[in-house]
Design a binder for these strands. Structure first.
Lengths: 338, 338
DNA sequence: ACCCGGTTTGCAAGCGATTGCAGCCAAGGT
DNA sequence: ACCTTGGCTGCAATCGCTTGCAAACCGGGT
């Protein structure tokens, strides 16, 4: 291993100077710095992150906690965060809570505590009080993405507004019989996102003077299969069939599209469908949707953290940061049948 | 911060003993160890990973390099690896190569070199000689998953056999006109997996005395949309239409299913479709497929590494480890139309 | 009582950087 | 010519833990 001492010798300076030259570079004359950099490059020197961390207390590493990795939204957030971190010279260590309660406990009781990360990004996580306490005990910056986290700055889209936008799009097209596929109980416990989307849907209907019928609401589990089932039920009744479906996620919306086809209905002639997310597959299915931008959310989370990690975090960010969303109209929505 | 010294004082022993008691626990009397553990628990002590790493040279951290995160296969491998690592008390730091050449360079020239990981898992990566050299220069264990890596122990399924299995399934059902959707040029550069699958397909046909027609092969990009396009072309010719399609991935197979429907064909009455992967969505679409088990591959990669990281890696694993695969028959394959 | 081998424990020297402090030097002011 | 000022640089302490080595201990054999 080539250490800092080797570089110092090679450049004819002290290790202190090497350290300063290679990091930040304040208080080093330009010519010295160049010499040091050249020596370092020539010797192939890379600072030992452990030694550096121990001495400085900075880890150059961010922990990202996700409930799953295998859903488009989460993977995208992680990808965005990862890329932004890389630009800043930070590593990303991933904590996945998929492994059940025991795994979850060990993350909070052990892994996050060993001084390995400078900060934590929690994606769509509903944390118990105890877990939040643990994190705060770390005394490290913490930012949330997508889940409402008590007392933690969180990036989120305004789910109510998102749902209203989607529903209003359908109303504007002339629909008056609009069904909604939302989250089921299990999801409601973890995030209150589904509930907010339902409220937004109801608010839009109410504003348009349309009555929200109980039978036009179906809970599902945010998967394509779930959306399929729900849509089959909604569309299965030949009379009294809704002319439009607003699904709380694109996966469920896609399931609805497939269900409609299987029932012999043509989208959008017989029924309109709109989702939320702008999932990878949405374009392929010609699905209208309200896009949110998870990659950007991941990136933004990193920016916020970098700001907080600055020596003097002047501009402390507020508690809730609203992320953009946007209506994307494709072929799955149109005016209702006469 | 509560440090090892505090625990030592509290337990009435030296820091050396605390260290030994909490890690491994060799050479510590049971009673002492219990006392130390109790003190540690009571004080909420967690070893500082940086200090520990610096002193011991062990990072308790594995680097995982992936080309994307947002594909089912990769995310699953990572999830599996992550879970296995967690069990062993290891962290996982993620390096994603999505960010383009510059990002890729920085991963190999900078991030991986800073002594932050004990070993590296490379998922479906085609590494340049220079990159492999860089990794070997690290002198750290390296294992590959899914991509053939020169001189590196690699877990992979036997793609030739997988393709043969799928094709033979179709042949056994009585099909003689079997099309194949494989990888396109761009993919072939990165992994030679698509090529192997094509060879397996051709081998199975040859073994059955069936001629492989050029026009029954279509390259695509491993996405649903790509599979859809390819299948439309294959099935678009009313006469001379193949009665079965073997797609090199489930995404493409699903695209084929949708294309068939859009052409007014009924699966499996008019055309059979089989894929590879056993993708999340395969069950929903009733897709027959040859399952591979990416989570298990991730887990297995970890086991292999743990073995190599042992003080005396007696049983060095061979260069290539074959992973299991399995035919899963669902509703998308049946005997050809009369 | 003494010696011996095996365990258990403590001492203290690292691990490889960072950084406060003090010294040095050159330039500018008087 | 002398002092000040401020920019560079080096010395050496420090971060918190691990581990080789040697001392202490313990029970049993002679």
């Amino acid at each position: 291993m080539v250490g800092i001492a080797d570089v110092a010798r090679h450049a004819g300076v002290s290790t202190a100077t090497v350290s300063r030259a290679l990091s930040g570079g304040r208080n080093v004359s330009p010519v010295t710095r160049l010499r040091v950099e050249a020596s370092a490059a020539q010797l192939g020197y890379v600072v030992s992150s452990t030694a550096s961390s121990l001495a400085s207390g900075r880890m150059k590493n961010i922990g990202v906690v996700v409930p799953f990795l295998n859903r488009w939204f989460f993977a995208s957030v992680v990808e965005g965060a990862q890329q932004a971190l890389q630009r800043h010279g930070y590593d990303l260590t991933l904590y996945n809570l998929t492994g059940g309660l025991e795994a979850r406990r060990s993350v909070f009781e052990h892994f996050l505590l060993r001084q390995r990360v400078d900060a934590v990004i929690a994606v769509s996580l509903e944390l118990s009080e105890h877990e939040v306490a643990r994190l705060h005990a770390l005394d490290k910056p913490l930012v949330g993405v997508g889940g409402p986290l008590a007392g933690v700055p969180t990036l989120t889209v305004d789910d109510l507004a998102v749902a209203r936008l989607a529903t209003e799009h359908l109303i504007a097209l002339g629909h008056t019989r609009i069904a909604h596929i939302g989250g089921d109980k299990a999801f409601d416990l973890d995030f209150n996102l589904p509930t907010n989307r339902r409220f937004g849907y109801e608010a839009a209907l109410a504003a348009a003077g349309i009555e929200a019928r109980r039978e036009d609401y179906r809970p599902a589990d945010f998967t394509t299969a779930g959306g399929y089932q729900a849509a089959k039920q909604l569309l299965g009744r030949p009379h009294e069939r809704p002319t439009a479906i607003f699904a709380a996620s694109d996966e469920m919306a896609i399931g609805s599209l497939l269900a409609a086809r299987d029932l012999g209905l043509v989208v959008p002639r017989d029924v309109s469908v709109i989702g939320v997310d702008d999932h990878e597959q949405a374009a392929f299915f010609g699905l209208s949707t309200v896009a949110q931008f998870p990659r950007q959310q991941g990136e933004k989370a990193v920016e916020v953290l970098m700001e907080e990690l600055r020596p003097h975090p002047e501009l402390r960010t507020g508690l809730n940061i609203n992320m953009p969303f946007e209506l994307v109209v494709r072929g799955s929505t149109a005016r209702p049948p006469e």
